[in-house]
Every structure is written in structure tokens, then in C-alpha cells.
Design a protein around this nucleic acid. Structure first.
Lengths: 113, 113
DNA sequence: GGCATGGTTCGATAATAGTTGAACTATCGG
DNA sequence: CCGATAGTTCAACTATTATCGAACCATGCC
């Protein structure tokens, strides 16, 4: 199996809090994480609900989330599934994700992506 | 009373999650917040435990934290006291601060300020 | 008033992060 | 194998942040 298309993911134990906070500090990324909290999505479905964003831009945000350890991005046939690394996050930073997701997005003028 | 030296602070109800997350996403700011969790400090005492940082740089970080609503900065005689807005944060984002502070800073290569 | 002290604000520069088109890689269906 | 599809990576550009010296502002003390 040449070129297994697997992207690098930090392992659960080595997640860095500030990196996670930074990844979540962008309104568009946070909005996506909220959606991912309800289940995995293929990359194309990670597009903001309303408008469209260039693929490269979306991919860049996914990279930020992935490198921080917030999401996992696995190839599945010709597409990729993006999922929240909930267990790993809960394990490493207990209560953090719940606290972040608990806030019912009253804010975020920018929202989405 | 001219020039009461009061700095603007967002009120509790209008705190924005992403702004708070961003403010906490910097290792030096997070390290300071951890120290403030143990009680207020005058600005000079906000210096990183080891090294020294220019006053303007420190002031800039305090501004970021203050504008996000993470800390309060009140004049007291000729100095200023910086304190964590714990109640406001707990009120607005229940569990967030506890989760962030709960992590016993194993990380953060940069630390401090 | 004059001056030291404690901090903020300004302005310039350096460093990081975001945005995007184009090129590239992999997979699946004829 | 060819083309279409799904995404990532690259490179260039823009925008936001960080850093820090210098100027500035208030307070307290003499």
C-alpha cells in the first residue's frame, strides 16, 4: 500500500494545552468543532453552513486543529473523515471540552468554516 | 477627580469565548493566570518568576488578558492590582477556568511573564 | 513644585497566522 | 489508462500579534 495518505497526529499524551486553546480560539474553527461534537464529518461537509470557503483555506484550518490534537483526519476511500478527539481531550484536559462546548455560541460574529 | 486612571473592562455578560481562549492560548499569559489564581498581584509582581521582561511587553499582555475579560486591573495608590475575574468567568463559561487551571502545567516550554 | 516610582500608550519592526490560487497526490469509475 | 473527484501542499501576499524603546501620565513624597 504505497502512499497510505495518513496525516500525522500528535498522540494523546503529548497534547499541549496552549495549542489546543489556540486552535479553539478562532470563531470559524470553534464553530466547526461544535458541529464535530455531534459526529464525524467528511472534509467537504466541514464547509461553513452558509457560504463557501476555498478548499485550501478549509484544509489549513483542519491542519491547525489536527496538529493541536483537537481533531483526527483519516482517509476513507477517496474522501477523509474528520472527527473530534473527544476521549483524548477529556483524558488530557478533563472538563475542558465540555466547558467549551457547554457555552451555547451566543457569540462569534464570524462563525463557521 | 481628573484622570481616575481606570482602564476599560468588558462586563461579565459580554465576554466572548474565543477572546478568552485566545488570551489563554499564550504560554506566558497562561502562566501568569495560573499565578493569579492564587491571588491578586501588583503589575510588577506579574513579571516571570525567573527573567525580566520590558514593562511595555508585560503591559501589553495584561491588556490582552484584560480586554478578553480574564483579569481586572485596578489602580491602587501609585500601583495597580491585577486579579483574575474568576466569578465572572465561572458565571459565563462554567467549568472553563477550572479545566484550564486543573492541568498542572506539564507543558509550556516558554512559560511565564 | 520637583522628582522618583509604577505603569500605560505610541510607534516601529519582527514574527506569526490567515487566505487563496495553482500544482500535486490518491482513489474510484469507466 | 483516462478523467473526475476529494483533499493536501506550496508559495505569495495580507493581516494580525508580539516585542520593546521612548514618551507620557498619575501618584506620593519631600
Amino acid at each position: 500500500m504505497p502512499g497510505a495518505r495518513d496525516l500525522p497526529h500528535p498522540d494523546a499524551a503529548s497534547l499541549v494545552l496552549t495549542d489546543v486553546l489556540f486552535a479553539l480560539s478562532d470563531p470559524s474553527r470553534l464553530a466547526l468543532v461544535r458541529r464535530l461534537a455531534q459526529g464525524p464529518l467528511e472534509v467537504a461537509a466541514c464547509q461553513p453552513t452558509g457560504g463557501e470557503v476555498p478548499k485550501s483555506t478549509l484544509s489549513h484550518h483542519l491542519k491547525t486543529l489536527r496538529e493541536a490534537g483537537v481533531v483526527r483526519n483519516v482517509p476513507e476511500g477517496r474522501q477523509r473523515y474528520v472527527s473530534l478527539r473527544r476521549e483524548d481531550l477529556d483524558d488530557r484536559f478533563p472538563g475542558l471540552l465540555d466547558a467549551v462546548l457547554g457555552t451555547t455560541a451566543e457569540e462569534d460574529p464570524g462563525g463557521s468554516v
